[in-house]
Simulated assay, not measured.
Amino acid sequence: MKLALGTVQFGLDYGISNQHGRVSETEINAILATASKDNITTFDTASSYGTSEYLLGKHMQATANYLGKIAPTTAPLDIENEAKASLKNLRANHFSCLSAHHAKWLLNSEHGDDNYQALLNLKNKGLTKRIGCSVYNIEEAKTLINRYDIDVVQLPANLCDQQVFDSPFLSLCNSHNVEIHIRSLFLQGALLMRPSQLPKHLAPLKATHDTLTQIASGNNIDKMTLLLAPFVQHPQISKIIIGCCSNNQLIEVINAYQQANVKQFNYQDFAIVDDNITNPSLWPA
Rank of each mutant, 00 (worst) to 15 (best):
V178P: 12
N137V: 02
F169Q: 08
D166M: 04
C133Y: 04
L127K: 00
I150K: 07
L144E: 08
K129C: 02
R147I: 04
C173L: 14
C160Y: 07
K142Y: 03
C160W: 03
G132L: 01
L155S: 08
D149K: 14
Y136H: 10
T143E: 15
C173H: 13
Y136N: 12
T128P: 01
N174S: 15
I145T: 11
C160T: 08
V153S: 12
I150L: 15
F169G: 06
I150V: 12
L172W: 12
V178Q: 11
D166Q: 08
K125T: 00
D161I: 03
S167W: 10
A141V: 00
N137E: 10
S175V: 10
R130S: 10
H176T: 07
C133V: 04
G132R: 01
N137T: 01
V178L: 07
N146A: 07
A141W: 01
I145Y: 12
E140T: 01
L144W: 05
T128C: 04
L127E: 00
P168D: 13
V135M: 04
K142S: 12
N146C: 06
S167E: 14
I138M: 10
G132Q: 01
N124A: 11
K129D: 04
N177F: 13
F169I: 02
L170I: 05
I138H: 07
D161C: 13
S134F: 02
N158T: 11
R130P: 02
H176P: 05
I145K: 15
Q163A: 11
G132P: 02
S171L: 13
